[in-house]
Amino acid sequence: MKSLRALLVTYAGVMPSMLMLVGFLVLPLAIILVFSFLTPGPYGGVEPQVSVAAYVKLFFQKDLYGDLTFNSSVLEIAFRSVKIAAISVLGCVLLGAPVAYYIAQQPKRRRNTLLLLITIPFWTNLLIRTYSWIIILRDNGLVNNFLISANLTEAPVKLLYTEGSVVIGLVYTYVPFMILPIYAALERLDAGLIEAARDLYASKWRSVTSVVIPLAAPGFTAGSILVFIPCLGTFVAPELLGGGKHLMLGSLVQMQFAAGRNWPYGSALAMMIMAVVLVCLTIFALNARKTGGGMQH
């Protein structure tokens, strides 16, 4: 009787999170999975006819003679998306880690003010903030006007509509997601450990690389995941700042559900992205275990 009650209490306690997981994760995923194995309807939607055509389409397309031949477009788009997302993660680490460290060093009241400042950009719509970068980066924009008036260059430097400008936009957008977890990890860091390292004649640099970074590794991992995943699916920055000259995975999926009218293919692409994310996360996790996990215990 008692154990049954305990069981019920446990279930009741778990219920909200179970409901959330099922309602917001399992069900939508199941729909995507099922749709990816159906046939596209003529004007969007799906028809209840099982088919693996959508998955075949990821790598093979009909050629001129109606034969299926290998097509690398999707792979190239996926590779580019992963590359840009990875570079953006790196950019966020380089920019975010020092900021997080600085904030963690401040007195407590000051810290809260600084954290508030970090979140202020989120008060403005993403589209508007991304648009502002166009004004900064374009040929007759702020940066080029400055460079020209300072006689550093004669013709404007091409900054906008490059992969670089996409990365700038992504780093700008997502760096707070890197700062906050790293800060959370650093805040809990026992200052005594750094002192101990210094007492044992570790240089300043050495104490950072051997003590601070390994202890903050969970923060770095969490931040990297939080930045990597949205970067992979983004389509605002690639269109506005990259000029849309190269498709990214996010735009490719979006296209299939709109004018492309091929929902199963869009769903298959979404499943593929999830597989990519899963592989990347596993690599992240293994790395984290090697570096951070070992030190902590």
């Binding site: 596209p40 003529p42 004007y43 397309q61 097509n71 690398s72 477009s73 999707v74 190239e76 788009i77 849309g244 000259k245 190269h246 498709l247 490719l252 296209m255 299939q256 004018a259 492309g260 009218r261 091929n262």
Partner: peptide
Amino acid sequence: KTCSPEAVDLRNLVWTTLLE
């Protein structure tokens, strides 16, 4: 016009190949 699924497929293939 609103094209047949075959035509839409072909159009998407052109687009994806162009912007790959």
